[in-house]
Structure formats: structure tokens, C-alpha cells
Write a protein that binds this DNA or RNA. Structure first.
Lengths: 209, 209
DNA sequence: TACAACTTTGCAGTGACTCTAATTTTGTGG
DNA sequence: CCACAAAATTAGAGTCACTGCAAAGTTGTA
């Protein structure tokens, strides 16, 4: 299937807008940049920006949406007899070693975190994406375990696991943002991830007594 | 300490605005009502509305914010030797029997849920409140267990517990919204709550194998 | 080359929210 | 009871994300 001129132009325009926007956000922060500026810098009209991106937040969180089904895929592709928690533990610990961008561990992480931290609307949008991730994971788990419609457990399991991953990631961001290098953060993250998944696997039990 | 005329008027104005707004939202939905309408109906200027409520969402979620520290208090007031999970299980199961409004189990729950369900911005605001609840609970837990600054576990425990409560509540809302009576929903909620807290207490272990 | 389909644009809104400068209302000291 | 300060309310003008529509431009196709 050839990519015609029309398709190519559309892709290019979309990428140009996204790149220009990201550059401006990085330089000056999310709230401080208006869509009108982005449009002008990308040499398109404001309406064209909205043709490609439904909201301003989408301009920044584009790639997060793309990987909305990552957790569901982790659950689907786990080994025979491997528990769900085990699969996510393995995936997350591997991500630490490879600095997987799907978990926000790539190079720009500190800057990404700084921008997120200063914009409530971006944070809220990210939470939305995480919510959809959890819902999708829950559907996969429900199908795999044959749980019936009324059973909340698949959704609970999905929620617990993703909440764990989110909190680990948030901790990582905070440390990167405070100026620590990735090599300083990595051991902490490894250790906390292990503790977190242990807690998840073994339960909160008598925590706090 | 007397309540002077000024204080009384302020309180009355605030309540009038909040009541008028809630009434309009109930009748026509959140997005469908403008602040200008609310101001006119409450016989104040638009600016006065913003004097009392920072955002439109706050007009509806006023009471939720008031009880932002409920989970922290549950943790603080638990019995000697009682685990955190046990305390929340107890509190939640009790709430089911008394239809505690703090857990959204009061009479207007179905209508409340319907309005929430149709407004993404309200949902996002509620998530924010829940986030702050979890942060506050985490601080209490950290203090109680003497966990050090780097230890994510208190925040993880807080997150897991509140996520559980949120999902139980969401399930309840969905059922109430679909027309089921409270008497039909209650047994389901009891059962699911027990299962949920069991899962939380004992861990996800080999779920999904 | 003509025509249909699609993309981009301009224009005119709407509505939440902000800022500033009046104007009104309330508490207080003489 | 009367000024005067402090606080509350208001009007007015503006910003910005986002929407809807119709006109203009571009691309694929017969």
C-alpha cells in the first residue's frame, strides 16, 4: 500500500505541529504557550491544530495515548503459568534496565516531569489515560480468568497493579526532577519496585500494626 | 465567638450559590449550565461566584473537598493492634449499613452518579481530590510506621486502599444509575467489598495462573 | 481537464476564568 | 449618629481553549 501525497502531507503536518508544540512546551512550560502561538510557529491555522489534536493536552501527551494498551499486552503475553503480578514485576524491572520509554524512563524524563508537575490539566489528562489503561487491562483479565460481569476483582487487580506502576514512576520523576542522575535513581527504583511488587503479591496483611 | 452580620451574610451567600448551582446541575446536567445562569439565579454577579468557588467544578464537589481528610482520620482512629486494612474494611462495611454519605451512599447517589458520569471535567476533579486524600493518608501512615522519606510503601498502601474504595463506589454508582434500588445493590456491595478487602489483605498472589 | 473528495482557513461565536478599578455594604471609633 | 476604614460586590474589558460553518485551496480520479 503506497502512501499517497495526501497521506504523507497529513503525517508531516501532524508531526510538525506536535514537534513545534513540544519544543515550545519544553522551553516555556505548558500553560505559558498558547495554541495560537503553536499554530503560527508551525505555519498552520489554529483550526488545523484542532483538526489533528482534540485538546491542547493531547499535543503533549500524544505518545502516551499511543501506548494505551501496553498493560493489556503485558497481561496477554505472559508465560504459561505466570501470574499477573509476576508478569508486571518482570516487565517493570526489565524496563528499569533498558530505560524503556513506555514507562517514562527515557532521556527527557526529568524535563517531562517538570512540565507535568507545573500543569494540573496535564496531570489530569494523564490520569484519564491511566484510567483507560486500567479498564482495558481489566477486560483482558476478566476474559482470561472467565470472571463474570459482576465480579469486581479483575478491575481491582488491574487498578492495584497500575497504581503501583504509577507511584513508582512518580517517585522516579521526583528524584530526576530534583537533579539526581539516572544512575543515582536506578538503584532506588530497583529496590522500591521489588518492595512494591512484593507488597502487591503478598498483600497489605498486618501493615500498620 | 459571635458570628457577626458580615460572617453570616457571607455564609448565606455561599450556601445560596451552592444550593442554586446544585439544583440547576441536578435538573439539567453540569455542562449544560453556565456560571452566568447560576449567578443570575442566585442573584449575584459572576465575579461573586468566583469569589467563593475557584472553579465551576468546585460548585458541585464542594462537600467532597470538605471531607478530604476522612481516610487519614480512619487510619488515626483505628484500634490498638488493628491493621490499616482491617480498619478500612470495618469502616467501609459499616458505611454500607448506615448508608454513610461520606462514601456517596446517601439518597441522591444515583443522580449524583449520573451527573458525574456525563462530565469528564467533574470526574477529573474528583480524581484530584482522591489523589490528595491518598497523599494525606500516606503521610499519616508514614508517621505511624516511622517509615523513612525514601520508602514508598506508605504511599503504596494508601493508594491501594483508596483505589479499592473508589472502585467499589464506582460499581455501586453504576448499579444505582442503571435503576437498581439500594436494597438490590447493598448485598452485591457487601459481597464485593469483602472480596476486595480480602484481596487487598492477602495480596494478588497467583491471580491469573 | 473537469469534477469530487478532502484539507485548510477565516470568521464569528461561547464560556470559564482573570484583572483592575469603581461602588456598595458593614464594622468601628469618636 | 456620623464619619472613615475595611471588606464585599460589582462592572467591564480581556484572554484563551474550543466549536461550528462556509469559503477557498489542494489532491485524487475519471
Amino acid at each position: 500500500m503506497e502512501e499517497g501525497l495526501r497521506e504523507r502531507k497529513k503525517r508531516e503536518t501532524r508531526e510538525r505541529i506536535s514537534d513545534v508544540a513540544t519544543g515550545l512546551f519544553m522551553a516555556r512550560g505548558f500553560e505559558e504557550v498558547t495554541i495560537a502561538e503553536i499554530a503560527k510557529a508551525a505555519d498552520v491555522s489554529v483550526n488545523t491544530v484542532f483538526n489533528y489534536f482534540g485538546t491542547k493536552e493531547d499535543l503533549f501527551l500524544d505518545r502516551q495515548e499511543e501506548v494505551e494498551d501496553v498493560p493489556a499486552r503485558v497481561a496477554l503475553s505472559r508465560g504459561e503459568g505466570e501470574s499477573v503480578v509476576a508478569a508486571f514485576r518482570r516487565d517493570f524491572l526489565a524496563a528499569i534496565e533498558t530505560r524503556d520509554w513506555r514507562y517514562g524512563m527515557n532521556d527527557g524524563a526529568a524535563e517531562f516531569g517538570r512540565i507535568m508537575a507545573r500543569s494540573p490539566s496535564l496531570q489530569s489528562r494523564l490520569r484519564e489515560i491511566e484510567l483507560r489503561r486500567a479498564d482495558r487491562l481489566a477486560r483482558v483479565l476478566a476474559a482470561q480468568t472467565g470472571a463474570d460481569e459482576d465480579d469486581l476483582r479483575p478491575r481491582l487487580v488491574a487498578g492495584q497493579i497500575l497504581e503501583t506502576a504509577v507511584l513508582l514512576t512518580r517517585g522516579m520523576w521526583l528524584r530526576l526532577m530534583s537533579g539526581q542522575s539516572w544512575e543515582e535513581v536506578r538503584p532506588w527504583l530497583r529496590e522500591q519496585a521489588k518492595a512494591a511488587f512484593d507488597l502487591l503479591e503478598g498483600g497489605l496483611g498486618d501493615f500498620g500494626t
